[in-house]
Design a protein around this nucleic acid. Structure first.
Length: 425
RNA sequence: GCCGGGGUGGUGUAGCCUGGUAGCAUCGGGGACUGUGGAUCCCCUCGCCCGAGUUCAAAUCUCGGCCCCGGCCCCA
């Protein structure tokens, strides 16, 4: 006997799970479609180089890669932005700008599983490829927030920053670019000690360091509002104006949006506005969405700029209240053929009813009437269709309302007239 | 990769400290009841994560592995 267990970090989804997941998925699709985004799909695996080329060692360590039978180095996709950009740069390029696309698919990373982190997980995202105007930025952020609302999540918060602000500030005190990466990570983690350590190697003026730290790291990790930012540096004016315009357009009535200059995002291709959404109640893996403005000229070899975000679909599902989860569909008919002579008519009735869009389940185990009615009820059917020798002989079937108990004979030919006579629920 | 807490029928649990018969609930299958249902009663299937060690004897104690949960890291 071989190992029947499920691979580590993967999940099976029950019919109930899938009912909930599909409903939310559809809700998201409707949202994105209504904003003019078109869905694209790319392969589950790609040439490994697509992911390796510009990635750090962490991404590569987590890559599910393999040699195919032709000796090619392939990898399961760890994220969807690169494949979508690959698609864009080869085929979608000629489409009118701006190009609005969205994607939904599974991704694979060899990680240590824990709550909210899996080796196979689903990501939903959009890309707005075109000029990064404040209106376009606010559209993208707004869609991500509306997605949370559609999922009926109400404790999320949005943090918006700007990578240009951080870069400029560091530039003013002459920090060596080679240390940007470590420093950016330290800033993103709000790790003052690491920030100070890295910066002390570069600058001598303690006052400058201190003021910089206070500017970048909100007190008590509390989000700040943009108006708290009092930086007079000419390089920053454009960035701050840009953010102001975006925030103004977001028209955040519920106070979800906060300014957090410490967001730097890990990826190299981000520049300008960046944002994250998290749901505090999720615990350690609370970030459900991340995105921002990017430029991909250095990666794809051609000038591509845009705005996008990725949503962790599984984390959204975890945050959805149990009361919002779906039950399996109920209602409709349960057909009970009694004896072999009833089978043919039973199949015909089932075909007609399902063709008319009704849920219609066949008693196919040969159970007796009593047992079958009991099953019909427990499966949530509204009506039982009873077909026995009597019915076959007269070309009729018995239709029993399982809620009221009423029962009547219906001519098989009169099936189409069922509409409106009974409540299919 | 690191640090904690756990793994008992499909599901939820008792038993573990203080070694000896694995109990309960629910779900699933069947029957009482061969053409009229959510009830009741009865019967049945299915389990100590894996391996090694200690012992007359291990679900229980020891070690290793695997897996799950929480945290770190990173991210979604």
């Amino acid at each position: 006997m071989f190992d029947l267990s499920r691979p580590r970090g993967t999940r099976d989804f029950s019919p109930n799970d899938m009912a909930s997941r599909r409903r939310i998925e559809e809700e998201f699709r409707k949202l994105l479609t209504s904003y003019g985004y078109g869905e694209v799909q790319t392969p589950a695996f790609e040439h490994a180089d697509l992911f390796i080329a510009r990635s750090g060692p962490q991404v590569i360590d987590q890559l599910y890669d393999f040699k195919d039978k032709g000796g090619r180095h392939m990898a399961l996709r760890p994220e969807l932005t690169a494949p979508v950009m690959r698609y864009y740069s080869t085929e979608l390029k000629s489409m009118p700008k701006p190009l609005r696309v969205f994607y939904f698919g599974n991704c694979f990373r060899y990680e240590r599983p824990q709550r909210g982190r899996f080796r196979e997980f689903w990501q939903l995202g959009i890309e707005y490829i075109g000029r990064r105007t404040p209106l376009a930025c606010s559209e993208v952020i707004s869609i991500s927030m509306e997605a949370m609302e559609r999922a009926k999540i109400n404790d999320h918060r949005v943090r918006i920053g700007h990578i240009g602000i951080v870069r400029s500030l560091l530039g003013t005190i002459g920090i060596d670019t080679e240390n940007y990466r470590d420093l950016m990570i330290a800033i993103d983690k709000k790790d003052k000690i690491a920030m100070e350590r890295i910066m002390c190697d570069e600058v001598e003026d303690a006052h400058e360091i201190t003021s910089l730290l206070t500017t970048l790291v909100p007190k008590d990790h509390a989000p700040k509002t943009l108006s708290d930012m009092s930086i007079d540096h000419p390089d920053l004016k454009d960035a701050i104006d840009h953010l102001r315009s975006i925030l103004h357009l977001l028209d955040d009535q519920q106070g979800r949006v906060h300014f957090d200059p410490s967001i730097t995002r890990g990826l190299d291709y981000y520049e300008g506005m960046v944002f994250e959404i998290d749901i505090p109640s999720l615990g350690a893996e609370k970030q459900v969405c991340g995105g921002g403005e990017y430029s991909l000229s250095n990666i794809l070899g051609s000038e591509v700029e845009g705005i996008g975000f990725g949503i962790g679909f599984d984390r959204v599902m975890m945050a959805i209240a149990d009361s919002e989860r779906d039950a399996l569909p109920t209602g409709g008919f349960y057909i009970i053929p009694l004896g072999e002579s009833a089978n043919v008519m039973a199949r015909h009735v089932q075909r007609d009813l399902t063709a008319a869009g009704h849920r219609c389940i066949m008693e196919a185990q040969g159970r007796g009437l009593k047992k079958a009615l009991s099953i019909a009820t427990s499966m949530g059917a509204r009506y039982a269709v009873i077909i026995g020798e009597e019915e076959v002989g007269s070309g009729e079937f018995s239709l029993k309302d399982l809620v009221t108990g009423d029962q009547r004979r219906i001519a098989f030919k009169g099936l189409s007239k069922l509409e409106g006579v009974f409540h299919d629920q």
